[in-house]
Design a protein around this nucleic acid. Structure first.
Lengths: 298, 298
DNA sequence: GTATTTATGTAGTATTACTACCAAAACCAC
DNA sequence: GTGGTTTTGGTAGTAATACTACATAAATAC
């Protein structure tokens, strides 16, 4: 399958639009204008509506790297359900809640898919190894990225090593100033341009700590990090576009924490089980209601 | 398209497995076992590998409500990219980071798609209206749901009305005990069985506040709420399954906050713009780096 | 045990995707 | 401009695929 490439179908279409010959461009335009029609129709119908011949449609598909029209249609169906790219689905003042919900779900799903395509698994592996070898963990972030840090803290507390997520800049600075080479800092910033976060990363690193960066792109912050994890989403061009970046960040945290938990082995698993039992008991005692054993989180 | 129904293709397959005649069941089993093969193959190939005739495959497709084999393949392609249901992709101790990442992305995307299908838009609309008419907002949640509450708070601060998200149970209780009918409480709990959260919901409501509940299902907590928003995901059967519920909750918050912001109109928009400018200026002053204007969040 | 319904396969047809080949257009050297 | 060359687009034909009508086999009911 060719769709394992990094960029999504619509992005590739847009990029190659210039380099296409004008008949094929007609096809490309039809695809972007009315993808559902193309998905549901036969090659002859597509050719007729685009005003070209069938082989042109065929060449268009193979030119994009697909085996044929069928394969292209499948890829198009997949791209379609992941949602139209964010630019085409900007929020309007008159949108109903239903329309907004649809657009936001589209953006969310397509963004997570995008971050999936761009995620560097080698860096993830390196991050897991680093965390496993660390004696302490510190998570750093502000506002939306701060929430990701708090989420990471909730999960990291199950690792069995000291960990913290100072939430204001001064405490973050202090944590970095006092750190040591056995500690790993996870610094999170979507823009990668938040000066205070960058300063913390730099300081922690200068004191020998390993610094893992989670950012929306290859940002300035990444230069200050030993391990660079890019959680790429679609850029927020619109004011009202919700911040999908935090969702991508949370998924990265999910992957890291799951991998670390699994690698920590049986001994840790026993602790984990007893924690769960304890938490369930605690909830029963204090709140009079049993938490489901399988979900320690609320 | 038939795929606009609530349940996903794989769920429908599982449900109808019993009612199928045994030849068609062979096809269904092949689809669940090796969906990629079915997606990539022709009808004859599928029929051959399932050990049935082509018309049986055809009947299987039309029986599920599709126009034909092609239409079924498109739906399958879409279901596939949304990820295989969680049960089939449990985490194993020996999984590589790449495998874990793949499984977690699958679960995340398919869960968000699921919550999309189940989201009650009328309740969302009611929630938006309620928030617009409120004079104050309070967000309540613990642990993972607490993070959602904090996220909601970050967004709600742009609404221009007093809002808070007390994070410990005592402060939550106090907020409920002191509330009034002009205030709206948004109580968040995936399980809906957290006693303290439920108590807060009950108390706030008894004092006349409107209570919006966000939960993973039609849980006990929902009985205590005026407006019930279900953010449905795939159940966490596995211990190591990450909590996708918080992501669904965050998307709900995205939709609510975007809708509310848009409805508040031009006056509020001006405030919002000036806040952005101010924040950018603040970042420049204090941190020596400019935040992109379009993204007030880090 | 026969009749009736249900389930499955056989054989045929129409559609569809794909390919080999050819014609027109564009480009270029001179 | 003209002749050669390359690029681009279309025609026609072929192989395959999806789909349908029909017949047979199995199961059920009476």
């Amino acid at each position: 399958m060719e769709s394992t490439s990094q960029t999504s179908l619509f992005e590739r279409l847009k990029e190659s639009l210039e380099s296409l010959r004008k008949s094929e461009r007609k096809v490309a335009e039809l695809v972007t204008e009315d993808p559902s029609f193309v998905m549901e129709s036969s090659m002859s119908a597509v050719a007729a509506r685009a005003g070209v011949s069938e082989p042109t449609v065929m060449r268009f598909c193979t030119g994009l790297g697909f085996d044929g029209f069928q394969a292209f249609k499948l890829a198009l169906a997949q791209a379609l359900i992941l949602g139209v790219p964010s630019v085409e689905s900007a929020m309007n003042r008159g949108d109903s809640v239903a329309e907004l919900a649809s657009k936001i779900f589209d953006q969310t799903i397509s963004s997570i898919d995008r971050s999936r395509r761009f995620l560097d698994l080698d860096q993830m592996e390196a991050a897991v190894q680093t965390i496993l070898e660390s004696k302490a963990l510190v998570f750093i972030g502000l506002s939306a990225s701060g929430l990701i840090a708090q989420d990471a803290l909730q999960k990291a507390q199950l690792f069995g090593i000291p960990c913290s997520a100072p939430s204001d800049t001064h405490q973050q600075f202090m944590a970095a100033a006092m750190t040591d080479p056995d500690t790993t800092f996870v610094v999170i910033s979507n823009t990668g341009r938040t000066r205070s976060t960058n300063r913390v990363a730099q300081l922690a690193r200068s004191r020998g700590a390993t610094v893992i960066g989670i950012s929306g792109d290859d940002t300035p912050m990444m230069q200050l990090c030993d391990i660079k994890i890019v959680a790429k989403t679609f850029e927020n061009t619109d004011v009202y576009t919700p911040t999908v970046s935090r969702l991508a960040g949370l998924v990265v945290i999910d992957i890291l924490s799951t991998a670390v938990s699994l690698r920590r082995g049986e001994a840790h698993f026993a602790d984990f089980e007893s924690m769960k039992a304890g938490l369930a008991g605690y909830a029963r005692m204090t709140d009079g209601e049993t938490l489901p054993v399988a979900t320690p989180f609320d």
